[in-house]
């Protein structure tokens, strides 16, 4: 639980420059439109409704985060958007065209490391362009640019097993971007990294996003990450996965780690937390508490 000294409703109060940003954002074309999406899984134990009536739009060059408790259907949602899974009902439109299967117009970065171990960094980045028949020196120099962008020029001839986790995910981002997708889908890409690397990666990602014409849909379960990265945060409810609220993050851009203690930032986190863990109280209350220390041996 977050200790809150500021007004918890502050997350709704937007400074003029922030409001202007959001107004401008909503004037932009919609890249991805999700309309009344349903997904049910049939299994031996019965049917599971993973997603129920999910609708939202993502605007061009927007950075949108999806957050929700574990098992609420975040991965299912993004896999449907990527075309790796089919929906039970509803529509997914990319630039107005329905999505039918996986394609290079939607780049995806997975939580697990999915670099091809038999290809070098450069070859991994060139994989997408190669699939569409691009090769030769121009494709290679373009790949180098993408590798430069994620700061791994020195490693272009290394194999994935020689890279750290953070470096692998940077290559994965470069590989997805090399196809020049309309939207970058990221499913907890930094979930497996240690806290420090994760912070670094978040800054890298913001930098990349700022310098490219790219729209990002980013899944996370980390409040800080969501509040730090996103323009808007889509909060999902669990069982079934429904849209709870779409929060417009009132923290101005460009973002920096210094903003972690601003009232807007804290209020935003507080709001998300309330939505994800409604009236649960302190988690300690839920635990049984047998006493296992001798009487009169208090440490407090």
């Amino acid at each position: 639980m977050i200790e809150i000294q500021t007004d918890p409703l502050l997350y709704r109060v937007q400074k003029p420059e922030v409001r202007e940003r959001f107004e401008a954002l909503k004037q932009r074309p919609v890249v991805l439109s999700v309309q009344n999406l349903y997904k049910t899984f049939e299994s031996q134990t019965g049917t599971v409704t993973a997603l129920k009536d999910v609708s939202f739009d993502v605007y061009r060059r927007e950075f949108m985060c999806v957050i929700g408790p574990s098992g609420c259907g975040k991965s299912t949602l993004i896999r449907i958007l990527a075309g790796l899974e089919s929906s039970s009902d509803g529509k997914v439109l990319l630039d107005g065209n329905p999505v039918t299967g996986p394609g290079p117009d939607r780049g995806m970065v997975f939580q697990s490391y999915t670099l091809f171990p038999w290809l070098t960094v450069k070859q991994n980045v060139m994989f997408g362009p190669r699939m569409s028949g691009k090769r030769g020196t121009s494709a290679e120099s373009e790949a180098r640019q993408w590798i430069d962008l994620v700061g791994l020029s020195k490693f272009e001839n290394s194999y994935p097993h020689q890279l750290s986790g953070g470096m692998k995910q940077r290559v994965a981002i470069a590989r997805a971007l090399a196809n020049r997708p309309r939207i970058l889908l990221m499913d907890e890409p930094f979930g497996a990294l240690d806290a420090q690397t994760r912070c670094q990666m978040q800054s890298y990602l913001l930098q990349i996003w700022r310098n490219l014409d790219i729209t990002i849909l980013f899944i996370t379960h980390d409040l800080d990450e969501a509040a730090f990265l996103a323009d808007r945060i889509l909060v999902l409810k669990a069982n079934p996965g429904e849209v709870n609220e779409i929060i417009e993050v009132p923290v101005p851009r460009p973002r920096s780690a210094a903003q972690f203690i601003t009232p807007e930032f804290i209020a935003t986190k507080y709001r998300i937390d309330q939505l994800i863990h409604p009236d649960q109280g302190s988690p300690e209350d839920a635990l049984p508490f047998p006493r296992m220390t001798p009487q009169g041996d208090d440490v407090e």
Partner: peptide
Amino acid sequence: ELPLLEAAQTLGANQAQLLTR
């Protein structure tokens, strides 16, 4: 690993390319 196949699909590989690449 299935994720490798899925990653290749999101990068635009078709069925034949999945097998050979």
